[in-house]
Design a protein around this nucleic acid. Sequence first.
DNA 1: GGCAGTTTCAAACAAACATTTCACCGGTAT
DNA 2: ATACCGGTGAAATGTTTGTTTGAAACTGCC
Lengths: 215, 215
Amino acid sequence: MTGGYQSLDATREKLVESAGQVFAEQGFHDATVREICSRAGTNVAAVNYHFGDKLGLYTEVLRSSIFAQQLPSLSSKLAHSSDPRAALTALVYEWFESIHAVGRPAWYARIMAHEMTQPTLALDLVAEAMGPNYLRFRTLVGELTGRGPNDERTRMCVHSVVGQILHYVQARPMLARLWPELKLDDPDQRRAIADHIITFSLAGTANAGRGNTFK
Amino acid sequence: MTGGYQSLDATREKLVESAGQVFAEQGFHDATVREICSRAGTNVAAVNYHFGDKLGLYTEVLRSSIFAQQLPSLSSKLAHSSDPRAALTALVYEWFESIHAVGRPAWYARIMAHEMTQPTLALDLVAEAMGPNYLRFRTLVGELTGRGPNDERTRMCVHSVVGQILHYVQARPMLARLWPELKLDDPDQRRAIADHIITFSLAGTANAGRGNTFK
DNA sequence: GGCAGTTTCAAACAAACATTTCACCGGTAT
DNA sequence: ATACCGGTGAAATGTTTGTTTGAAACTGCC
């Protein structure tokens, strides 16, 4: 309660800051406590002191990211809109941009992308945070297919969109090899890709609305 | 050259066999030499003796997988076909199925999926093996868009298809949480999803053929 | 100044891992 | 028979992790 070295938990914040970077870059497993502390300019013991252990630091990063990023940004785009096509366009564009942006707001999206493929013990927390957005996403696409949010084909369309977006994050190293001209750092190219995903998906989704359900 | 305990490199083959399983399941980094040798019933020193180190074993698995799986299966589907739509259908279905299948032929596809997100020092070898298939894929989709294999929008369509397919492998843990009814073990559901990806993508690709290139 | 609680630090610790070592075995050639 | 050599096995080695320790440093207060 009484003072310490820093004015007011400066060490804590520096750790969360650099931990957000490293976790977003490398995922929970590959990130090392030493790297995080090195960037934060703190001693390795600080992690244990302030957060208990590595997982505690990770969940703290998640918690702060959720409150800082998720609610204001993505969710607002997913709110009920008069035009579902415009809403999907805004959503895809913003999500894609937030993943590839630099700086603090990008943590959440990139950590989520990692959590998709390599879930941690914090999976419960993550899935809990994702659930509402997933439902809103399905509701939105459900309006486009005319089949509602719980329909099988609506879900597949949602995952088609999500798969395309995440592909450019998860397969980035291989993309750099196979398609060297692609520069995801360039805002114009990012916009071109996001536009493509939107166009491609709107056509595919409209198509999925027609016809009967198989199986 | 002269004999040893086993008749003829039986240890080598057992190691490649179990290494293929473990690498496909867990990726290069998470796979342990001990686990591989345990399944193969060999001593850990055998890896070092026969392949130099873990990476040497990995590249050997890749090499054998490339020759055993890649050429006969995927490439034949990508060969010039009279109907590009039918060719794309066959390709997507076979790729999706091979990724989720069990047994030896599934190694290649799953290791490639891992290599996409977590490249290893063998990235050169992998990218080299992927290049030809990537070109054939682009050629195929290029016929659908009418823009040729090197067009920017053709490439984006290819990655839209690839992204959808890989999504169901890479995001499998999260999918199990968000969509519990999805059972990728069920052949019928796999077919339904593959069918959706094909329909979705054909609509999106046809759409991308129209209009002008932006930028 | 002295005390108490809080924070930091260098170092040590423990576990998991790939890798190396070296004695040993079983064929093969001399 | 004996020397040789490729292959094997159990144990040791070195490295990279996360985590813990105990002393020292700092702040605020009496």
